[in-house]
Each structure stands twice: as C-alpha cells, then as structure tokens.
Amino acid sequence: MTTDGSSGETVRTADEERAWSPEESLAVIRAQHVEAIRRLSVDPVPILGMWGVAWLCGFGALYLASAEGPGPFLPTWAAGLVLGLLFAAAIAVSVIQGVGRSHGVEGPSRRAAAMYGWSWTLAFAGLFAINLGLIHQGMPTRLAPLLWSGSSLLVVGLLYLAGGIIWSDRVQYGLGVWTLVAGAASVSAGVPANFAVLSLAGGGGFLVAAALGYARAVRARRAQVQL
C-alpha cells in the first residue's frame, strides 16, 4: 500500500512501522489475544480429565477389591496403590497448571487464584482432622468408608460451587451440584456400592465437565476467528 516511497510521508524506518491494512491489524489482534489467553489462563480440561480418570479408576479399583462386592478381583493394597498414584498425578497436574499459568502475574486475580488453591488443602486438612477424630472417638469402623466418601464429596462439591462463583463458570458450578448429589447417593448406597458411586458418578461427573469445557474452548476459538 505504501509503494510510492517518495510521497514525502513520515519515513518508516522498519517494516514493523509500515502501514498495516485493517485486515492485517485485526489478524494480529486476534492471534495475539488467543496466544495471551492460552498462556495466561488455566485450562480446566486436563485438570478435570485427570481427576475424572483418577476417580473412575481409583475408586473403581477399591470397589473391585472389596470382599463384599462382586469380587474381590484384586488385593486391597493394590487398589489403594492405584488410587494413591492417580490422585498424586491429578494433584500434580492441577498444581502445575495453576502455578505455571499465573507465574509472573500479580494482582487481585492472582490473589483469588492462590486463595482458591489453598482452600483445597485447608478444606481437606479439616476433613481429615474431623473424620480421624470421629473414628478415634469410637465411631463404628464399618461406617468409616461412608464417612470418607460422603464428606470428601461434600467438600469437593462445595469447592466447585465456590470455583463456579469466583470465575462465573457454569460448568464448574454444575459439577459442584452434581458432586453434592453423588456424595449423598454414595452414603445411601452403603459399602461397597459407595465406591461404585464414587467411581461412576464422581469420576463420570468430572469427565462430563472436561468434555463440556473442551466443547466450550472449541466454540470460543471458532467465535474468535469470526471476530
């Protein structure tokens, strides 16, 4: 467009200072916006997906290891190991995502994200203290699995409700509601069916949320292209 170099206009020393067509400029805005969002915002899909797999396989293994269920198909220690490893992996994915994306950013949103992250640690520390206290006070041990599954799902559900409120995210809020329902259902199911509820309803909820999150990301990318 500036082919007439001798027009006496402002001298543009570098290519970057040359005139850009509106199309080019809009394309630059679009590409840089997508790149900035990709690098700065936490992607919920791998987090939800990993937790879905951890719940589905981990609690599925516990159900299959139970002597009162259809099995046992595997020893309890093996099921416990599967659950422990998968949960450790899911925690690692969540922390790496959360810390990596907010690295180098300061301000209100970073503070809210850090407080939300610590809420998980604090809530589960409280849950452990209360449950171990109840068991120590002489709660019948046959009820322990129901206490753990019911109270864990209650805490997870509440934290997802909170996440939905903070980031105005319907998928997270919906997952929270679903998890509360699954928690109540796991207690009424009794042992060992509670593990099947945790595996299928709990893990399934995460996987559905991951799929919804992925669909939303694809839609957002398409809308961005049509900007």
Binding site: V28, Q32, H33, L40, G104, E106, G107, S109, R110
Partner: peptide
C-alpha cells in the same frame, strides 16, 4: 498502529483489570 506495540497492548489487555505482569513473562507471550 504498529505491530509490536499493538501486540503488547493486546497481550496486556488479556490481564484482568488491576493485574500486572513481569517483564520476562510479557516477553514470552
């Protein structure tokens, strides 16, 4: 209306209002 400054502005606009970013992190983006 110069590509590098436009990109810097767009990248900074992706932050929430009130947030700030370090120089190396912005450089990476």
């Amino acid at each position: 209306h110069a590509q590098p400054r436009l990109r810097v502005t767009v990248a900074l606009a992706a932050l929430d209002e009130g947030d700030q970013i370090t120089f190396p992190r912005l450089q990476e983006i």
